[in-house]
């Protein structure tokens, strides 16, 4: 049963919560994974505690891990350079060196790590047919977006002119993103994964409008 818990790295991080079984929680886990032997250090309890546990464990299994390079998975825990040094010292006593930390990070956390505090980009001039503006953050266009022109932003899009082309706000999946234009008569609007076309025969010049998601649809309202 204990082993089952460890099938996924997530299971390992939950170990701290298994405090009712102190015997098991006091052991660190080494797993042979695709990238190589990986040591999992739980996020709970102080790092110094785990350092002692590690030392004990290695002492018991002396010689077993000799002469290997390993990965260390820390989860959300951040190590100071001192702590890192101590860890590598303990490992070095038993002939191990650290290849790198958090081998899963790139894959597991990349999707949300990229959402930095949003930045605003200002585009001066009209986005014409065949031109495309992309920005990670909010986007302000000081001009029109003509038919055939495309603007894509991970945040909001504000058009200080006529939006006649295509605008895609919240392109990384932000459902709260909005599209605002002085005149909104687009070929197509997209917010996150939702698409919409302008109703047939809609006329320009109805004043500033805002498009946002309500329910599962993009709704356009007067600003």
């Amino acid at each position: 049963m204990w082993n089952k818990k460890l099938k996924s790295p997530e299971g390992v991080f939950k170990m701290g919560s298994l405090a009712t079984k102190p015997l098991y929680s006091e052991r660190l886990v080494f797993k042979g994974l695709k990238q190589g032997l990986t040591l999992f250090i739980p996020e709970k309890k102080p790092f110094s505690h785990w350092l002692l546990v590690l030392n004990d464990q290695l002492k018991q299994a002396r010689g077993f891990f000799k002469g290997g390079t390993i990965f260390v998975e820390l989860g959300e825990r951040k190590l100071s350079s001192n702590e890192r040094e101590e860890l590598s010292k303990v490992l070095a006593n038993y002939g191990m060196t650290i290849k790198s930390f958090n081998p899963f990070e790139k894959r597991r956390f990349s999707s949300w790590r990229k959402e930095k505090p949003s930045q605003v980009m200002l585009v001066k001039g009209t986005v014409r047919n065949g031109q495309r503006v992309e920005h990670d953050g909010d986007l302000v266009i000081k001009g029109d977006i003509n038919p055939g022109g495309e603007v894509v932003a991970s945040g909001d899009i504000i058009v200080l002119g006529v939006l006649r082309g295509m605008a895609h706000a919240g392109a990384r999946g932000n459902l709260q993103a909005e599209i605002i234009a002085f005149t909104l008569s687009p070929v197509q609007l997209r917010i996150a994964h939702i698409f919409s076309r302008a109703p047939e025969g809609k006329k320009e010049g109805e004043g500033p409008e805002i498009a946002r998601i309500k329910g599962e649809k993009i709704v356009v309202e007067k600003l």
Binding site: G130, Q131, P147, G148
Partner: peptide, 10 residues
């Protein structure tokens, strides 16, 4: 007109 718009950009 669409094509002309494209040309202006180019």
């Amino acid at each position: 007109v669409r094509d002309a718009d494209r040309i202006i950009g180019l």
